[in-house]
Amino acid sequence: MDGIADMGGTQGWGRVHPPDREERVFAEDWQRKAFALAILSSRVACGGVNTDAFRHALERLDRAAYLDDGYFGRWLNGGELMLTEHSVLAPGAVEARARNLRGEDVEEPPVPEPDLPRYAPTAEGSLRSVATSPAFGVGERVRARNTSVPGHTRLPRYVRGHSGVVEIIQPAHVLPDTNAHFMGENPQYVYSVRFDSRELWGADAEPFTVTVDMYESYLETTA
């Protein structure tokens, strides 16, 4: 999808924040629990670890839920979205409980019948082995497909349709595009493809290169 999370090259965000070496891991107390709860909520909702499904939940949050609550708020909101989508929690259950916690007297929705996805990862993590050889070689010129898909993808908009050169062939990994939707692992080699800044941003761009790590099916030959 072409969602809010796909930020590469977008403009209007202002200056970056200078690093603070003394920054704490969790600036506020609630962020500790929000972080852990998001991880555990995702596991409960998927019936296992599925980082791709969690990232897809994050990218489907609305603007306020994605940006305004900050990084850990976004994680909490993503966890809640997964729990309600799989009917572990009723919509509005968290808000109702939160209102009761602050002294309101709100009726909480009944607990629904959970509807967990059919999900059975073949191994822990996302590294997999595949029997085939890599389709592209180091040094080969390739093009990122110019496609927009309705679901999850890790092919960022800013490289779609652009050509680059394979720098490193990385091991095969579970394909996020299908795994996020519980539609299978479809492991593929990943390619670190190096793009020239002028190919992406035009002749006046700062001179530099950027590598983007792309699953094999994101790429096509330029010939």
Partner: peptide
């Protein structure tokens, strides 16, 4: 304090506490 049906959405800190309660009381985490 009882705010009684405020229009203001609960803070993210309060929603974190709420989610923790909802999941722990059902033994889900």
């Amino acid at each position: 304090t009882t705010t009684g049906g405020s229009d203001e959405s609960p803070s993210v800190a309060l929603r974190t506490e709420a989610l923790e309660q909802l999941l722990t009381e059902r033994g889900l985490i």
